[in-house]
Design a protein around this nucleic acid. Sequence first.
DNA 1: TTACAAATGAGAAGCATTAGCAATAAGGAA
DNA 2: TTCCTTATTGCTAATGCTTCTCATTTGTAA
Lengths: 147, 147
Amino acid sequence: MENGTGSLEDDRKALSVTGIRATNQRAIVLEVISRGQGHLDADEIYRRARMNQPHISLSTVYRTLQAFKKLGLIDELHFDEAHHYYEIKPAFEHQHLICLGCGKIVEFECPLSQKMKKDVARENDFEVTSVEVRMTGYCPQCRQDRT
Amino acid sequence: MENGTGSLEDDRKALSVTGIRATNQRAIVLEVISRGQGHLDADEIYRRARMNQPHISLSTVYRTLQAFKKLGLIDELHFDEAHHYYEIKPAFEHQHLICLGCGKIVEFECPLSQKMKKDVARENDFEVTSVEVRMTGYCPQCRQDRT
DNA sequence: TTACAAATGAGAAGCATTAGCAATAAGGAA
DNA sequence: TTCCTTATTGCTAATGCTTCTCATTTGTAA
């Protein structure tokens, strides 16, 4: 959990490039999300951030998340009804497959989604800015447990 | 708004077939969703239901929605962060395209999503139970207004 | 018609998220 | 460096959607 300061500096630099103030809180939130293997919700980010910065507030986490989202640094995902999840904007477009049994999330690439996007844009005369594909089902383990 | 009782009877019948009790409240909620051109949120359903049944409670609407979802009568959609939207389970699978400008929702059929589903299921050894494709962008009007 | 479980209404409670505001800290200017 | 301005923070209260509780009512099968 503590390789910390070095890459926090990198996070600060990344932030100042974007034009917003590079605060410790923001650096830590960015760091947490980067290390977080994607798919952390606000509360989990808060909990992890507090390990480095015990006084960070939940409001700040939420505000930071909004800011990052607006800057395009992160993506906000809507997996279930209750929470949002955040991940660093991925280098390659990918989609999500969610196990209804254990909640495991699998990312997959989806070349078809690009074609789909073009088709839909043309047919509806839309400018399409994002495509989110979300499949749910049961992973091998959970399928076994169910029988 | 008042062709009412006749098709409410149909709704009651549809409900008893499913095994749950056919109450007025449930019949009206089902009726409202059927007429609702898809994409109503709980509060809108509540407001419309009250026109027929002024004392229906919001709790009942939510409970009914859950029940219908479990029965597979309706689909619950996650368009934005704040609400869920409900639509009668469509006869043909379709997906949604949402205008970020005016909120308009366009449904489109998507043959590719079936192929996608099979591909993903095979590659990840998942049993895939649902595919939700959600595109966002700008419709012709809003695109014009933005310039 | 009766009996019993299921469903309802009304309001309180629960959660994630947002807003308000005084205190603090970042970043540029002197 | 020091100062100034203003964005940002922390705390707390508020909001809004959704769920829960429980006394009362209603549907259904006998």
